[in-house]
Structure formats: structure tokens, C-alpha cells
Write a protein that binds this DNA or RNA. Sequence first.
RNA 1: GGCCCCAUCGUCUAGCGGUUAGGACAUCGGCCUCUCACGCCGGUAACAUGGGUUCGAUUCCCAUUGGGGUCGCCA
Length: 472
Amino acid sequence: MTVRVRFAPSPTGYLHIGGVRTALFNWLWARHTKGTFVLRIEDTDRERSTDESRQAIFDSMKWLGLDWDEGPYTQMERLALYKEQAERLIQQKKAFRCYCTKEELDAQREALKKKDPKAQFRYPGTCRDRTDQPDKPFVVRFRTPSEGSVTYVDKVFGEVTTPNAAQQDFVLLRSDGIPLYNFGAVVDDMTMEITLVARGRDHMVNTPPQLMLYEAFGAKPPEFAHLPMMLAQNGEKLSKRHGAVSVSEYRDQGYAPNAVLNYLVRFGWSHGDQEVFSRDELIAAFGWEACGRGDGKFDTKKFLAINHAHLKEARLMPDDEYATRVVPFLEKRGVAGVSHDAAKAAVPLIRERATTFVDAADRLDFVFRAEPVMDEAAAKKFFVQAAAPNLRGLAAQIEGATTWNAHALEERVNAWLAERGLQIKDVAQSARVALTGRSASPGLFDVIATLGKDETLKRLQRGAALAEKAAT
RNA sequence: GGCCCCAUCGUCUAGCGGUUAGGACAUCGGCCUCUCACGCCGGUAACAUGGGUUCGAUUCCCAUUGGGGUCGCCA
């Protein structure tokens, strides 16, 4: 049987990083098994669902490269189906119309609680066995057995048993005919022939009622895999107040899509000692047996480190892709008109240094500006009068260079330094500030090689002039 | 409170009866070095507690403690 999995977010906000993890595990399983990944939008909450969120989900999924094979299906376009299936259950007496109002039920529950505080929370209404059909609004409820229990084998947690006494006559259809989560999900998963449902552990309690529905429909249920919770550092549910939680924020902070997936997959899943994975390695290695059960805490530092690891390796982030991704970040900081090729040529300068694309753009800034933005403190420290002749001398060496690569330049300059009884230390910092505007930069000769002869000379002369003007 | 689930360094985790309890991030030293990084070497740091089972438990079982999920005409 071919694997069919799904991701079914509700469009009630940006795509949450926790949601991405759910999507990722499903997607990986689909790709690993050469199965089908279905995208379904569960938009039955009319108050909170918006088209913008729907679009944000699509955008984020695409940015992450979590491509779907089927869908997006939309629940609000399938209302007739839910109604039909609910009717079927009513006919079979597996569900019933309930005319109780919320207020009535609340009052009855209160009364029951007063009598016995330990009373199980079950449907207190009286519509279960009524045969009339008054002309009043009604919801459709499932006739939940009070005896027995439901057992299933979770792909991650193993055997889970829940007594039916803990369940109530849950609502299938609201009075406006819109399905509630459990019903909509089951009807859809059933008709879409989903073979495995992977979702957050917060959904574990929904599994028994859903299993009851499958049984009522006489349908074979899918397998279930629940994922441990991803919590904030302080153990609370991960939310905005703990920092960035939406995918788009990480995109804007300069994270690489594959790094995001890499960090998230290691949350609740492991593959020996391997920490860094390419997309293909993930697909090949993924499996439920290696999933852990304990909840975890989101760690921003590790996330950053994983991103750094991806940006560092050309295997994971080729020069071409790096250039494409970093150019918009250069533009965002006012460095416009950088060609793809120029960016690509400069990428090696910052490979091992930049932790994000924001960081990369910052470190590359000097390459693409007519004049580097000068760090005044660095200029003051290194543009002293004694530095001027060294800068002029270095410029002369660069000017006379015939072989244009970092290694040859370094050899040439070293020969000159030796002749003058100088060391690279004696000129490096003032040259660095002249060339990059900063006291920290990529290697001097790599910078020179990348800037080119004309630009290098211009900047060295400018630095020398500033040094000469410095107070003694 | 009922029901369900979980428990190895600060964090993510490896371990599937016998290990000096391993790796990664973070952290602290050191090396390398034109700065910043990278890289390399090394240090600190964990099996929640109590009972069993066993020749032997981090590992299996049970309690306790702690944490989490959920109890809607939200998803």
C-alpha cells in the first residue's frame, strides 16, 4: 500500500515553527517512501481563518521546499460531504441530533458537578434517544460508548489505551452545518485515503474519538504518529513572547530553508551522532523508529549554529544559491545593483564567517560600496602617520602585481616586507581598515583579490591620505 | 480534579542488561593566526527518587516526585 500523509494547518495566522516540524515529518515520510504528501487547509473556524494566513502558509511551505503532491484541499469547499456523512451516522443511530443549547448543557453540567464533584465529564443532555425532530437548531453528536476502551499502537509512543468513560458525546457538526475538527479530519483523512497521520502530541487525545469514527464508518483507520512537544526555553508553550516563532521571521533573519528543516528534524528525531544533514540525507535516513518521546525546549543558539553549519559548507549551500539568497539582504541594507556573479565571486570571503544571510550581507557590505563605511574608532586607531608609508608601499606592490590571486599577492607582498624588515602585522590592520572600513574582515589578500587592482589601489591611497592627515 | 503522555550533561540527543555513559550546541582553557572567523586539542557538565526482577541495571516492571497535553457548537 502506498503511503499517503498530509499536513492540515488551519489558516489562522503565520506558519508556526512547530507546525513546520509537523509538516516536515509528514513530508519526509512521504519522500522517504515515495508516497504522497497532501496539503489540506482546515478553515472551518470562520472567525479566525483568513485568506492572508492561507497565503502565508503556502509561501512558507514553498520557501522551505516542502512541496505537496496533492491539494490544497479546503474544508469549507467540502461541506456537503460532511453533512452527507453525518446523515449516514444518524441513520445508523451512531450519531444523533442534539437540540440542547450550550447554556442548558452548561447548567446541567454544573448541577452534576455540585452533586458529585468527581463525576465524569459526559454528555448530560437528553437528546440521545429522542425520536422527534423539533424545528429548532441542532448539532450532530456522536453516540459515544461509555463502556470499554480504545487502544491503538502509536508509531512513536507505542500502545496507548484510553477508557471510553473519559469520552463524551462529541459534536460532529455545528448547528450551522460546519464540521468540528475531529469529524472533518476523519471524513477527510478517510476519503483522501490517508495511511498515516503524524501530528503534535497535543492531538493525542483526539485519536480515540477519531478511531471511534473510523469504526462507525466501517473504515480502516490510518496509523498514528505523535510528535513530542516543542517548548520554549522556560518550558512554556512556544509562542511569540519567547521570540521568533513564524517561519517568515527566520527567513527574514537570514536563515537557510534547509537549515531550518535540519534544526527541526533533530528535534525528536536522531540518526546516530549526525547533526548536519542535507535534504537528501534526511529523506534517506528518516524513520519513525528513531523518534524520541520526550518533550524538548527550543534552543536559538543551536538553531543558529546549524544555520552556520549550512552556510559554511558549499555542499549544503552552493555558491550559486548563496549568491541568490544574499543579494536581497544586501539590497535591504541599501547596497543595490549587485550582480549575481559579483555576489557569487565574493561568497568565499565570508563562507566560514557568516552565520546568517543578514550577517553575510553585513560582512560583504564593503565589497559592493563605492567607499566602505568607515568604522571611526578603527580609523582613528590605525590611520596614524606611521601607517602612511606602509600603505603607500603596499599599494606600490599591488600595483606591480602581475599574477592576480590571493596566494601570489601574498608572496609578492611578503617578499617586499622581508626586504623592508617588516612583518605583515605591521601593515595588516591599517590596510584592512583602508580596504574594508573595519578592523575585522576576511583575510587581507582574499579581500584584495576580490576587490581587484583598481579598487584596492584607490582604497589604499585613500587610507594613506587619511593617515597622513592624522595628528602626530 | 479526570483521562492520557513523558523523564540521560544547561539544551538537542546516542544508549535498546555488562560502556572510563558517546556526540552536538552552549560554556571554560589552549593551539593556529594579518584581524574576524574556521579548524584543532583539552576541561567542567547528566542517567529525578524509592522499591523490585536479575549474577549484573541508565536500560525491564511498579510506585513516588516532577513536567507536559487535554477536558468547546477552536483546531
